[in-house]
């Protein structure tokens, strides 16, 4: 396919959040996603990118188009080497926040996407992998 099949966006400060979601939107647009999905995708990227800035300081967002038969999808990976999440089940609950957030970022993002996985380790950091399929 096109040469830019995978994009890495470093996340170090709050302005990188804007960059990441704009890159994601552009990539999703090229992959043929509809208006609503474009917004859904940018919103999801915004949440996981902000979690990096707020809870882990720095990391990266990786955007990739995936083909599964005739289906096309956008795979978003948010990776950081921060302190990790001690209790993922708790962090995934609506309203749970260790900061002054609404605690909706993670559970809400899961609702926005078709697939959502999260792995975390205090030694390694946190990785969120999520997918949206084009319908």
């Amino acid at each position: 396919m096109t040469p830019k099949d995978e994009i890495h966006v470093p996340i170090n400060s709050d302005s990188d959040i804007v960059t990441a979601r704009q890159q994601g939107r552009t990539m999703a647009l090229e992959a043929g996603f509809g208006d609503t999905d474009l917004t859904v995708i940018s919103t999801a990227i915004s949440e996981v990118a902000r979690n990096i800035v707020e809870h882990a300081l720095s990391g990266e967002i990786i955007l990739r188009i995936e083909h599964n038969g005739s289906k096309a999808g956008l795979v978003i990976t948010a990776r950081d080497d921060g302190p990790g999440i001690p209790d993922i089940a708790l962090a995934m609950q609506d309203g749970y926040s260790t900061g002054k957030g609404l605690g909706l970022g993670l559970p809400g993002t899961k609702r926005l996407m078709d697939e959502f996985d999260i792995v975390s380790d205090p030694e390694i950091g946190t990785t969120v992998i999520m997918k949206k399929w084009r319908n």
Binding site: D35, T36, L38, T39, V40, T43, E47, D94, L102, L104, P107, G108, T109, R111, L112
Partner: peptide
């Protein structure tokens, strides 16, 4: 607030 934005917001729970 645009239609798509409103849609994404409620799905997120906002």
């Amino acid at each position: 607030i645009q239609p798509e934005v409103a849609f994404a917001m409620v799905q997120l729970g906002l």
